[in-house]
Design a protein around this nucleic acid. Structure first.
Lengths: 224, 224
DNA sequence: CCTCAAGTATGAGATTTCTCATACATAGTG
DNA sequence: CACTATGTATGAGAAATCTCATACTTGAGG
């Protein structure tokens, strides 16, 4: 982690994201700009963060680490979004880990100083409620999908959702965690898609050769 | 659903749950007392509710219905707790179904009339944030547990958590949904526990004969 | 008393998914 | 350059879980 002192960049990001509009008090003077390199943790599993973060650039993922050493990838967070807001309300809570996927910039508010101000700011609280409700609904959907559909169905939906110009290029290791299956099994199903002609392997990633077939397979997991 | 006009009961419940303390304005005059019979839906899947509910007596369960007809039991709600709060913030959201398990009493606030008041009430918003954060953490834990552990492990933890005086008496159909497995498979694992001597079948339910063995099995799923 | 819905129970066979092992490629690092 | 970590890839066998079928029981309602 690195504090960015370049005020021009900070000002620019503040304006672009309209960060100040999320609050009814003036939090700009207390706002710091932080940078996290790819792979760094913004919030470490089990350690209460000192800041409330607002991710303005970059992509992160939220983990839950289980007692048996397994890791469940719960959700992806893309800018703009809050990070560390759950810990603001319940200091006793042990937070889930949030790791960056690429270089990330965060506007950050020191909790110690601003906690009481934030907790009585209706504008801010309303925004957080909205955000939490949305996150919750997404989590529930993901979880029940993971339970109710086979990997082939979920993967088909996932490929359709994440491909760019008909090329699917996600990292298998990460996807396996997100879809809640073993790496081995994911590869097995991908190989199946290839041998069925749904996907074609190229240097640029997997080419979605039969989107209609994937749509048919994944439509139920997708629509929900 | 049934509106209870017995003001004595309403007053008693209001006092017992300190409902008024959750708000900074006086919502008592607008509060209705509603009763739902066992099995009724407080919120129907996909239909935006007209009230913000506060469950004061009874036990409910939250469902997600998937496109393939399967049902995922996401969470149980026990009094006291809010119901329908997610829809308050995002009217466009399609709510998850909430069904009562036994007879339930709810204090209810009409959304249409009070929405704007509630959304600018910092005390109320703070309470909702706390509640949402907690619910979210619980959902994440449940979901990753369902993914990361076998049914035997989860069931062991579940039995230890839900038994009364060493008797386990939950309905298998419900538990299968909650633990995210087929009824058949649940029965299979229970039969296994019985033949291993962990449980003994009696007229009063299953007797937990070897809690230590269950503890050993479920400790990882439990601790998380 | 009959009937229907819901819960309980068990068998057989198929599918999904996991674990472990092993091999190779690639990128970053001292 | 050698070393290491990470991602990719594939095989073999086992475990977990599912679907479908079938029966019996029990409680609620007509």
């Amino acid at each position: 982690m690195q504090t960015i002192t370049d005020n021009r960049l900070k000002t620019q990001l503040l304006e672009k994201t309209k960060f100040a509009n999320l609050f009814s008090t003036d939090i700009v003077p207390d706002t710091e700009l932080l940078m996290f390199q790819s792979g760094e943790y913004i919030v470490q599993n089990g350690i209460t963060p000192q800041y409330l973060f607002y991710l303005v650039k970059g992509k992160t993922k939220l983990y839950d680490e289980l007692a048996n050493g397994k890791i469940a990838l719960i959700d992806f967070f893309m800018a703009p979004c809050f990070i560390g807001e759950m810990e603001l309300f319940d200091a006793g809570r042990l937070p889930f880990g949030v790791q960056t996927i690429n270089d990330c910039y965060c506007l950050a508010l020191p909790v110690k100083k601003l906690k009481s101000t934030l907790l009585s700011d209706a504008t801010f609280l309303k925004n957080i409620c909205l955000y939490l409700a949305d996150k919750n609904a997404r989590n529930i959907k993901t979880a029940s999908r993971n339970q109710g559909f086979t990997l082939a169905q979920r993967l088909a939906a996932f490929i359709l959702m994440t491909n760019h110009d008909n090329y699917y290029q996600e990292k298998h290791t990460q996807v396996a965690q997100y879809l809640g299956v073993s790496y081995r099994h994911l590869l097995y199903v991908i190989a199946d898609f290839v041998s069925s002609g749904y996907l074609t392997k190229t240097e640029k990633g997997y080419f979605v050769a039969l989107p209609s077939a994937l749509k048919e397979l994944g439509k139920e997991a997708f629509s929900e």
